[in-house]
Design a protein around this nucleic acid. Sequence first.
DNA 1: TTGTAAGCGTTATCAC
DNA 2: GTGATAACGCTTACAA
Lengths: 333, 333
Amino acid sequence: MARTLDDLAELSGVSRATVSRVINGGSVSPATRQRVLDVIETTNYRPNLAARNLASGRSGVVGVVMHVAAPLTFADAYFSQLLTGICDSLTSQAAGMMLWLGNRTKQETLDNILGMGMLDGIIVTADTIDDPLVDGLRASDIPLVLVGHRRADRDSSYVDVDHEAASEAITAHLVKTGRNAIYHITGRPNSVSGRDRAIGFRNAIRKAGLELDGHVIPGDYTDESGYEATKNLIASGLRFDALFCGNDNTARGAYRALSEAGRSIPDDVAVAGFDDLEFASQLGPPLTTVRQGVDEIGHEAARTLLSLLENPESGPRRVLLPTELVVRGSTTA
Amino acid sequence: MARTLDDLAELSGVSRATVSRVINGGSVSPATRQRVLDVIETTNYRPNLAARNLASGRSGVVGVVMHVAAPLTFADAYFSQLLTGICDSLTSQAAGMMLWLGNRTKQETLDNILGMGMLDGIIVTADTIDDPLVDGLRASDIPLVLVGHRRADRDSSYVDVDHEAASEAITAHLVKTGRNAIYHITGRPNSVSGRDRAIGFRNAIRKAGLELDGHVIPGDYTDESGYEATKNLIASGLRFDALFCGNDNTARGAYRALSEAGRSIPDDVAVAGFDDLEFASQLGPPLTTVRQGVDEIGHEAARTLLSLLENPESGPRRVLLPTELVVRGSTTA
DNA sequence: TTGTAAGCGTTATCAC
DNA sequence: GTGATAACGCTTACAA
């Protein structure tokens, strides 16, 4: 069993350089190429990545960093789906991936990642707005694609959806269906998506000329926060006929609180979410929400990074994926 | 900014070999060591993994392979928790990890993984009993730790819990609390854990001298399978006073069916699960189940592999982690 | 304790 | 189209 290029070279009676050309697609005569390919086939040869990396400067391995509070990582289906999407795309492109999960301190993780010293590029996602790790990574000279962390600066590549526009759209839908006392239970404080969704909500409410003051209630993307916020709102005695929740989880919590209070959805209160997770369509009534194809985001992130590596000169990639407003029974009769 | 050992050597006025010794803990005089360390500190040097790997034969990177049907990967909290545990342990040991998710064909994945040619070892988990990928990996000469895939052969290292004993224990608990028409809704066919849990169930029933024939109903670990199986059982008109479900998800489905049929838990039917996922304690009534510390399994898998790499001569590691019977309201008044 | 030098398995630049 | 040959950055005998 051939272990090195030299073995292959000897077995096929050519030089190592020629074997390398066969493998990497240099110009070789059809006859020799075939001969070498046969030998490769029968010997079950596998190139040594480390050596290849050392000689060429690239490794075929990209890093995936999810700098997210540990328990949160998979509580929210967002991250698992994202990881699945990225992994899937990368594998099909024959690129390896190294993974960093959780949120250790910036420096520790940074040393760890950069110390790897062999990553062609990095896909990074983080949940807080000003994540020092993201900044540290951006400061390094390794190609980077941010996910769900859109930046205003001109030199970052990112893949994201337009949370702001989507939120404005779904809020406008609530307005259009006749609601006029609309509240928003926000996502996690300091999260990029939470902030942007709240902005979209405010925009829509302002455009509709509706009351905004006190209509933004802090939440944190959990079922519980939706439940508590809704319960408090009910207890406050304020009139409300629609709830735009930071995500589907939060909406599910709101359902519970409304049901306990005997308020009917959508007759008394319309409820809208964000994400379109699997359970959204199975709630009673089915939840109106914004669908963002999370695995598609993952795929696109991988594609984007690979294209960036392929062609680094062509400047940063800035990809905004479309969302879809999914209207179901929770907002319309 | 120093990029190579040679840079460091020059800056600190010693040879490259000495710098290498400082970094890898060879014998160096305190004075020179300090001098070199200072230079390393100020230059923010990071060793090149590929070169180190090429020269030493080890990379500090382990592979993690989860050969599981894609949609299943994170539907079951088991795999996410496992991954989190592994990742956590590995990172804290300064070991990198490469990840392969999903279940592509054996050969494709195998080429991909082995072709990496730089992994020090692999942690592999798969859901089916005879996974060819697992066999392919075992056939390679790379150190391997199996998770949830205990093997009888004498030369595999694994980390698992004793599904069989745990199932026997929880079934015995049902017997002891006076149940005598006990049914088991199994886990996924061909899954290692599903098979072992069913064996444990059978053992307990036999020892109790109860009826076993027809009492093992096929399920697949999903909520739905629990719901359907229970519904059918009710429809069949057969008397039953206890249900041991393949996992907590399945038990949740059973709850729904029982509730729809107006049967009370635990008065009419006792229900038991397996896993002790977060929701188990929040069901009404709280679910009696088996707790297996999944993240601990992940930690242990990482530790085991690292120890195996450290000391390959000392033979395979075979770790069975303890489980805990958690008795709650679903089986006792 | 320290330095010298021989690899590790590729890729890539030359000549031929 | 093909073959020498010099990197790539590090580890590790072996000498000194």
